[in-house]
Design a protein around this nucleic acid. Structure first.
Lengths: 220, 220
DNA sequence: CGTATACTTGAATTGAGTCAATAAGTGTGG
DNA sequence: CCACACTTATTGACTCAATTCAAGTATACG
């Protein structure tokens, strides 16, 4: 069951015990997996589809804190509620675990807890990077950093590194980068004019100057 | 050794084994505990003083990702390097653990690993809140949210809740909130004019309208 | 194929930043 | 304890990047 990302680092037996307590569920596009105030009863592993994580203010302003893809783990929370919302951007396949059962396995499978701590540590690192982006980067730098991280991700999946797929719409990109949708759109247009990018469709981008991307993304 | 925050939830014996591998160190104000690119060889527990955590871009722009106080845990990282900088804002007393030894204890003391995961989960939650602040709040909302979280923290320490102590300077506040120092200053002045705050000293604030603080901070 | 949704572009506005000049603290040594 | 130097904070004037509001255009989908 190597499709379950949290299994990385586990042996077949351990993985089997995890699968034994898993429920496979499907969720339609645009449906919430859970909301900010929901009691945190489950943890999940994404097997297919993509998810956006967000927090909102009372007046509707929204910050997307991350996007999840197949293999990603969802639902780490030590509080009673999730404190953020997870929504399906595409149809989803998930492995769902009851939190209680999942955490009970920590005692039997130390490698599982180690793995969850690893996931949490990576999440902290990603969050810190994103705070730097939100607090200190210009619109152009935000967009280029975002495209860079997207191309980093798909680079693993034996695709041409200069072809970036964006499963989310402009508003989602804007809410992820702390910008307005108009500014995201204008910034894309400007980068196309400058010859850095080419928009194949609204969700498919060709990076013409990957070196430029890397430099700005890595803060040089 | 209850002064070591990471000991929360551990029994005396477990705590003792942790102390056995701890080195107590002192660090002068303004010195770095470690820098972004340093190999992550240690983890720490703050016993006295306060720390700022930050990441910087090549041109010097800086984002402070958090402040640490006595009891807080420092150095969670699953990568080879820390990826952020930790600096002493005041003279520090720290408990230092070799990461290797510390993580080796996970096998002997399951509650320790559980505790670290708990710390990491809280850090993720705090980071998500801060992303919402950085990406979607106005300068005024940022400042009020910050003061609210400061007063939340000191509320535990049997102090009057409306007296907020800021151990950091305006530039640090600015770099934490994704603002310029001038904007922080102007926002304070404006809030004083509006009768929400009173500045006792540059580092001591009286909150005259705590209800207003709470409302804006909690996004109502 | 038409209609709703998503995206782009333009014009005007504004919140926050920058630069520059004080003012207020803070600490140090005589 | 005060005077000096240095750091930190405030305030003002101006600028500008990004937002908002308002069309218009493209895209996707039933």
């Amino acid at each position: 069951m190597r499709e379950i990302g949290v299994c990385a680092g586990l042996n077949d037996d351990e993985c089997g015990r995890l699968v034994a307590i898993a429920t496979r569920i499907k969720i339609d596009a645009k449906r919430a997996v859970f909301s900010e105030t929901d009691p945190a009863r489950h943890v999940f592993n994404v097997t297919a589809g993509s998810i956006r994580l967000s927090k909102a203010l009372a007046d509707g302003r929204r910050q997307i804190t991350g996007f999840l893809f197949p293999g990603d783990f969802l639902g780490i929370a030590y509080a009673k509620t999730y404190a953020y919302t997870a929504e399906a951007m595409t149809p989803l396949s998930l492995c769902r675990f009851q939190r209680q059962k999942f955490e009970a396995l920590f005692n039997e499978i130390p490698a599982l807890e180690r793995r969850v701590l690893e996931v949490a540590s990576n999440e902290i690192k990603t969050a810190q990077d994103h705070m730097l982006l939100l607090g200190r980067k210009s619109a152009k730098e935000k967009v280029l950093s975002f495209l860079w991280s997207c191309s980093e991700r798909t680079a693993h999946e034996n695709r041409p590194a200069d072809l970036v797929e964006l499963p989310m719409n402009r508003i989602d990109v804007a809410d992820y980068l702390g910008l307005s949708a108009e500014t995201v759109s204008r910034t894309f247009s400007r980068l196309v004019n400058e010859g850095v990018l080419e928009l194949l469709t609204n969700h498919t981008i060709i990076v013409r100057q990957p070196e430029r991307l890397r430099k700005i993304a890595e803060g040089e």
